[in-house]
Amino acid sequence: MSKKHLLLPLLAFTLALTGCATASKPEAMVATTATPVHKSPSAVTISVAGGKDTSKMGASQISNDSFGAAIKSSIEQSGLFAQATTESGSPYTLAAFIGKVDQPMMGFSMTVTMEVNYTLTKIDTGEAVWTKDISSTHTAKAGEAFAGVERLRLANEGAARENIRQMIEAVSALQLH
């Protein structure tokens, strides 16, 4: 086989494996809880910091907006608070700081570890009623997607989903009114 015939498949394989990174999707990060959640009649304002935007040539990332949207949908679906919004004016604020998203550079199975610091503050007193660092991990297996960038996105989304699930269960245990 000539070098030309070897190079063409190599180039195609490289492009297929690298591809363009896609950002983690909010709808794929929405958490569902297995246990019933205590439902607070109050509203909560969500803010997120520490996230990163995805560049086409970089790795899949979790942005502030997409993680915030996933938290909002997860809270709404679970009923943890009567209303979840990104607008100010709610009795509670939930601030999430994405402090760590540890991603592999490559691999068949890709494991992402995520650590988020959550602080729930009661607005009228200014008191932080709950704060916790939550760590979560998710592995996207080789069979889940052919392209590495896609497996990384799936691992990001799984880690974020699990992180939000733990947050909801922890806040639910506070029995807020």
Binding site: L7, T14, T18, S47, A49, G50, M57, G58, F97, G99
Partner: peptide
Amino acid sequence: SAFALCVCLSGCATSGAQKAP
């Protein structure tokens, strides 16, 4: 050349930091 370009474009140096609110 195309292969080399793919490899070169596959990443750029980046650095940054963020502080918790």
